[in-house]
Structure formats: structure tokens, C-alpha cells
Amino acid sequence: MLKSLLVIMMSSVLVNNYVFSRYMGFDRMFDTSKKAKKVGSFGLLVTVVMVLAALVTWPLNAFVMEPLGLNFLQTVCFVFIIAGISFLAEIVIKKCFPALYTELGNVWPLILCNSAVLGVTLSNISAGYGFGESVFSSLGCGLGFLLAMWMFGGVKDRLEIAVPPKYFKGIPILLISAFIVSLAFYGFGGIIETIFA
């Protein structure tokens, strides 16, 4: 039982990495100004929000929406739940970790507008995951996001000192680097069957 949950989690981190394999949440990577430390805290925050979102949305879907046939409200509700959770998360950080708050700034819209967060809650439902599986999948998604941001942060540091061709400067060369990183994740395919075997 635990094994299958771990497989789902690892699959979200490596093989089906939400950023480099499913393209979600990539927009955050374009921001060229984040430093390594911020990446870590931002990534963790996103993971926390994702897991909380799964904890709220899955029961809502299973016990309220499905029985009452309110599936058409799914997107709207999920988006607002995520908005609410990220807003609350920001308030918590403001109160408890003020230093972190000053660093991250007004971060809750950024979390909301991250396709990965909405993406993982929706794909949990469409993949038919149970409660535990949803939570682990969200956890994996967040960790994958963190991993992606970390890795790509390192790449971006390198890009700062590199001198690409004139019209590639900025975003295009960033995308080419993303291509190469994505290749690395592409190579993870097939690892899932054997990773916990």
C-alpha cells in the first residue's frame, strides 16, 4: 500500500515532473531574479499549498460535488480554494516568519497562478486517485516543482555569465536550457517500475 503511494509520489517527481514533463508551472522559471534561497522557500511553500489543497479539494469533490452532481463548479471551486489557501499561507508567513515574508513579497497570487497547483488537484480527480494517493501525488508534485526550480536556478546562474547570440538573450536561451533539462527528465522514463521493486 505504502509502496504504491511512494511510486505515485516519485512518479510525480521524476518521470512525470510537473514542470519539465507536463509543462505546468514553468512560467515561474522565467523570473530571472530569484536567488537560490528564495527558490527553496518558495518551492516549499508551493508544496505545502499543494498538499493542503489536495486535503481540501479531494473530500470536497468526493463527498459534496459528486453526490450532488455539482461537477460543473469544479474548476471555480478549486481555483478559489487554492486562492484561499495561498492567501492564508501568506498571512501565516507574515505573522510567523516575517523575515521570509519580506524576502518573498506578495507571493499568494504567484502561487495561485501557478498552473501546477491547479493542475495537480485536477489531475488527481481525473486520474481517479483515492484520498491517500491524491495527497502523495500532490506532495510529489510539489517536491518535483522544488527540484525543478532548484535545478533550473543553477542553470540560470550559469546563464547570467554566458554570452548567447544576440536575439537569444534572455528568454530564448532560457528555453533552450530548459530543453536540455527536460531531456534529462525525459530520460527518467521507465524508472518507475523498478524504483521500489
Partner: peptide
Amino acid sequence: ATPGGFLVLGLVMALLSAINKKPVE
């Protein structure tokens, strides 16, 4: 495949910025 998306987008962007004569950055 998945990686190709990044590649093509980057290339098309570079092309467009060349046409616009303005680096995307």
C-alpha cells in the same frame, strides 16, 4: 515530444525577436 516544446518555443521566440529587432529580455 516534451523536450521539443521548449526547444521550438525558444527558437521561434528568438526568430520573432530578430524580426522585431528587439531582444526578448
